[in-house]
Amino acid sequence: MSPQQIADNRRMLTRLSIVAVFMFGFGYALVPFYDRICIALGINSLEVRAEPAANTQVDLTRTVTVEFDANSHGMPWRFEPKVRHMQVHPGQLVNVDYEVSNVRSAAVTGQAVVSYGPSLAGRYVRKLDCFCFTQQTLAAGEVRRMPVSFVLDATLPAGINTVTLSYTFFEVAGKS
């Protein structure tokens, strides 16, 4: 290669490297850009309520049976609801407790995953607080009571008279 060509190639290398570095920065620039777009279009804002406050008045004319279920999937945890079922009115705030105990002689981390029966009912269960929102770490032998607070939405379809909340704990691998 002639010295001229070597110099040309070097220049090209520098230019293209600058493009690459620039595009790396561009990836980061997408972050504020995305924020702006969301604000401009009024979507996905964390401060603004996503939907107008719904009528949460209690519908005393209806009574729905809510069943509570608990499983732990291949984990050394004993996990059960303190009540198995209760009668609630749509719109009424319900608080229930689950109890979990770690029978292993070491700390274990778990994550609960919820499923609903019938699955259609899921979107009408408005959870205000739940132990399934975060991972739970239990020390060896620890016993813990964990709350769930929820409201059954008053628009729950008339055909649904029983709703089951079933929680399953999975071990979070690599954390114990």
Binding site: L16, V19, A20, V21, F22, M23, F24, G25, F26, G27, Y28, L30, V31
Partner: peptide, 25 residues
């Protein structure tokens, strides 16, 4: 490649700093 690969590098770097350095991308 020169235009797209660095963007992926950025995305996984953001993931990395979210995991270990307290950012919240």
């Amino acid at each position: 490649l020169v235009a797209a690969m660095p963007v992926l590098a950025g995305a996984v770097t953001m993931t990395l700093t979210d995991r270990h350095f307290g950012t919240s991308f």
